[in-house]
Design a protein around this nucleic acid. Structure first.
Lengths: 143, 143
DNA sequence: AGAATTAAAGAGTTTAAACTCTTTTATTCG
DNA sequence: CGAATAAAAGAGTTTAAACTCTTTAATTCT
């Protein structure tokens, strides 16, 4: 349903959001080790998040990734669009070329319920929501 | 969520189920052309369906694929197990190693609703159900 | 200024799913 | 029996996602 890249991006962004409350920066290594994500692969993903304004970064000693003013209010859907593009949206469960309400595949309605349910969640929850859940101990980002 | 192979398998099996009411056999070529599926790739998939007893086949002139006594009562879930194995079942939306009710990822509950909804459908509907929908004109297998 | 540090960027390799091509085996029919 | 037909089987290639390695650019600190 989602790419691994989306999972990595979401966990890393939440991790940064959660830790940079007090102006702290996290290095790529700290994030990769803290979340058990391949370091260099995560590097590419973080680049993309910074380029899209989800996070900020600085180079050099004591540099790293940190939240900006928009970070906590970023919807999970924004991240999905960055990592997975239109993937989830124009997708038929059975991959037939035309599949819509007028010309449905046999799973069209059932899959629509499932997919739209997830999209609704992704359009409601923000990185701030997740960061709180993780800080609460009601959700986990690793292991 | 599902592999393309699952989509091909499901559509092909439904197609055969729908057409072999009156003892008719369908050749690989007829199925592949009728459903716009790559011929040789579909060959592998049909092999697997026959091996697992979902359909029957005979070689030689006027050979092909046809429904057996179990075909119409095959649950879609049975086909998913053949094509995708455990893929959907032991899967966390964010791919963290341990993700369960006691130690959930931030999307655990939402994804569980979505996934279990699909699984319930797949465990209820059979190839017979789909064949009827297609014959009714309420669902489509192609285009 | 120079060395150290860290993200950014570039250029790969690996892996698995998707897909193709060829050969073999079984069956039918003249 | 021999030719034709169609599935089964084997052995590939292609593609995209996932992942790795190396070099470059920016910043800090002495």
């Amino acid at each position: 349903m989602f790419s691994k890249t989306f999972g990595y991006a979401l966990r890393a962004a939440t991790f940064v959001a959660q830790h940079s409350a007090n102006d702290k920066k996290l290095s790529l290594l700290e994030i990769a080790q803290g979340l058990d994500i391949p370091r260099h692969f995560l590097g590419k993903i973080m680049q993309d998040l910074v380029r899209n304004g989800i996070l900020d970064s600085t180079k050099g000693p004591s540099g790293g990734f940190f939240a900006n003013s928009r970070t906590l209010d970023t919807f999970l859907l924004d991240i999905l669009k960055i990592t997975d593009g239109q993937l989830l949206f124009d997708q038929c469960a059975l991959n037939i070329k035309r599949c819509d309400a007028q010309h449905p595949c046999p799973l069209h309605d059932d899959f629509a319920v499932c997919r739209d349910g997830m999209l609704r969640v992704l359009a409601l929850k923000t990185l701030g929501t997740l960061a709180n859940e993780v800080s609460n101990g009601t959700a986990f980002l690793v292991r």
